[in-house]
Amino acid sequence: MPDSVAVVPFVILAALAVGGGAMMVLTRNVVHAAFWLLEVMMAVAGLFMLLSAGFLALIQMMVYAGAVSVLVLFTVMLTLRRREDAERSLDLSWSAGLIALGVFVAVGAAIASFVPPAVVAPAVTPGVAEFGRALFTERALPFEIASVVLLIALVGAVWWAGGDDR
């Protein structure tokens, strides 16, 4: 396992992610924004691949690109009465920009002062097999808890989004 990653794919994927994020915020159409979000998700999945996290890239594609995007599009569809409603004002605001910039300055200052420690990389890159083994042995409890969380969220979502007749 090398101790760094190639710069060319990183730059391409990073540009895709940042550009997609910016487009998502700056587009007027909610449906377009949802597709830009999808594009960011896929770029992040690519970055996961670059970071030798194949399994995460997979669930990133399945959960975000698959499920969440569809969910978002459905919600947009259900809450818009006319086609024109998808076009919205940009809602830009100075204060939010200033705050986001401030957070970025703070984060950037922290990153700038960050010195990466020397780490001995393992000879073999741990893959999906190691991930799965750890998930079902030493991390079985959080795994089960996560399933309970999902179940509760499922029930809650059905309850909230359910019919008017209760």
Binding site: V25, V107, G108
Partner: peptide, 14 residues
């Protein structure tokens, strides 16, 4: 950090 701040901006404005 950049992605986070873009998201933060969106969450605060939209």
């Amino acid at each position: 950090g950049v992605l986070f701040c873009i998201g933060l901006f969106g969450a605060l404005t939209k």
